[in-house]
Write a protein that binds this DNA or RNA. Structure first.
Lengths: 340, 340
DNA sequence: GTTTTTTTGATTTACGTACATCAAATTTGG
DNA sequence: CCAAATTTGATGTACGTAAATCAAAAAAAC
């Protein structure tokens, strides 16, 4: 049987109340006594029964998710996963609230974060907008004791406790290698469709993509990036125009708005053998993968990201360790054969 | 606040004891009364607080893992993950025992399973050996009320509750498409290295591989399968010999023993541009991927498989639902750019 | 209508921890 | 050495559920 507080009390030769004071860092314990108790804890290998503690405390974990108000499939999916998590709240003792902020608007995000420090959530998960002022509030909140994890898009250089999202540089590099290998000996130009170069994850994907392309596939030239603002209409327009260039042999779509990309490909490129790599598995990209319009899809699993963020925040709130390997968000690579 | 048993008792107009009798399926409740209680449970949306219940019961989950005594990196990794899970046991209220059985030996497996029905574990996870007699015991145990999940290798056609492993047909198909696409217009022969055609997962991978090859890459011919028995030495010998064939342009290694494969490739194929796809990320395959000896690695994450099996068994033991999407074991595809 | 059986209620203890209160013991300051 | 301050102990209640006991009520059987 695992030891209980009673065993610790007996082993340390003190009363239950004293053990409790040490465990919960309450005042009124002499230094030597505290040491005795801590020794007993270590020697018996005592670990607090979190379930029993939560029961006694009637504890719930009030968590806040902050998301950009973007109208694309991925963000809708992320939202849906958060709603699922809210449905599971009773069983998980969580109390989750989702807040939408205008996309790409550091000031708005800062405002929301500052408002949060008043209501006392025990954890914050946020899709970070990459700006110095955001970094500053995040660091302040972390110092104030709030567990914070970034979701989907990281805030490197800040003190956030954890990042629940894929390595976007690796994603871009992987896309480049897949595209390069799929094209084999063919020479030509590559069109890149992004959402916006103002977003960190898109910048990182592009960075990874161009570096592998330059290092390993010199016969493939990257055309100037098309910024589709994650909007299907704009994406369609840009891609349709770009496909006028007969030298294009491949396309890398690293953002959202793939509906427009797919439409453009079907209108303008049915007779050409283009190799296309896109991000994010949605109903549209899935169908396009199956009908060979797209050759591979890179994906991050929003459900895993949300569940991981929750696990990490709860663990941080309790001062517990997380299983690192479990919380690593993997880059999914889907060909038409391994679709879920 | 979520409703408690007290609320149910009040709402149904019965006593706490009666609610308890209904909840825990104890006898001595009239049919109509039971209905009243069940209605109240439904209307208030009561869900039993599993943490509190486990505390009261002093419940632990005795789980048994049955693994083949195979001496390869993957099984060692799986074993290590189970040991990790055992270390987490106190916090998770599990009591995990691992049993090794001779590999590919249905009779031995059946023996162990029958022994288990005497000691009463609340769940069994097993790497299944695919044989009718195994299916029969599994079905019998399931009927007797034991939750059973298969691990890594499934037992289709049996009544096992869940399979914690990858879709091996999809894995084989994916390998074929990667290989085919990487080779592009090249024609030639493909060598396939397997462990044994007696193992279901290897058979399935081969099945998926050959079907996509036949359908979509008719210029690539698959040579007779090399059975390396997951042994590095045998694998080395077989591959070294096979590489005498100058028509070989690609290799698919769908089992273990990749150490031997890699050695053979480095000795015999430095000057050739072979495309190689292998299964299972180990120290050896990882290094080979980085130095371009291998072009892609397909992997199943043993840690995820073990944790998933535990979650599913606990849920089944409690009669609770699992998050399906969370328990799907994904096929990892690693290029040198997205290694963890 | 009485007896027997079945069903229900009331109450208690327990699980491991948190938290509060009050008394007792110990240490510290003067 | 005494008073004040600090530290420790003893004890009780609570969290939501499980499980047991015994009494009371209701239903069924005679």
């Amino acid at each position: 049987m695992r030891p209980t507080v009673h065993d610790i009390a007996a082993a340390a030769g003190v009363s239950l109340a004293t053990v409790d004071r040490v465990l919960n860092q309450r005042p009124g314990v002499r230094h030597v006594t505290r040491e005795k108790v801590e020794t007993a804890i270590r020697e018996l290998g005592y670990v607090r029964d979190v379930a029993a503690a939560n029961l006694a405390k009637g504890r719930t974990y009030p968590l806040v998710f902050i998301l950009p108000a973007s109208d694309n499939s991925f963000m809708h999916g992320l939202n849906a996963e958060i709603r699922q998590a809210i449905l599971r709240s009773p069983a998980e003792r969580t109390d989750i609230r989702a807040i939408e902020v205008p996309a790409f608007d550091p000031a708005a995000l800062v405002g929301v974060l500052e408002g949060l420090s008043r209501e006392k959530p025990c954890g914050i998960a946020m899709v970070a907008t990459d700006a110095p002022e955001v970094r500053a509030v995040v660091d302040r909140l972390v110092h104030a004791g709030f567990p914070i994890v970034t979701l989907v898009s990281d805030l490197t250089g800040s003190l956030r406790h954890h990042y629940a999202g894929v390595d976007n540089i690796a994603a871009g590099r992987t896309a480049a290698r897949l595209l390069g290998r799929f094209l084999g000996p063919r020479k030509g130009k590559i069109a890149v469709l992004a959402g916006s170069m103002l977003v960190r994850d898109h910048r990182e994907r592009l960075e990874g993509f161009t570096s592998v392309m330059a290092e390993e596939f010199p016969d493939l030239a990257i055309l100037p990036v098309l910024e589709g603002r994650d909007d299907p209409e704009i994406a369609h327009m840009l891609v349709a125009k770009a496909l006028g260039n007969a030298d294009i042999v491949g396309v890398y779509s690293l953002g959202a708005g793939n509906r427009g990309l797919i439409r453009a490909l079907k209108e303008k490129a049915v007779d050409r053998t283009l190799t296309v790599i896109a991000h994010e598995l949605t109903a549209h990209t899935r169908a396009a993968l199956i009908d060979n319009t797209i050759d591979a899809i890179l994906n991050q699993n929003a459900g895993h990201e949300v569940r991981s963020a929750i696990r990490v925040l709860k663990a941080k709130a309790d001062g517990l360790a997380v299983i690192e390997a479990q919380e690593r968000i993997r880059l999914d690579i889907f060909l038409k054969d391994n679709l879920p």
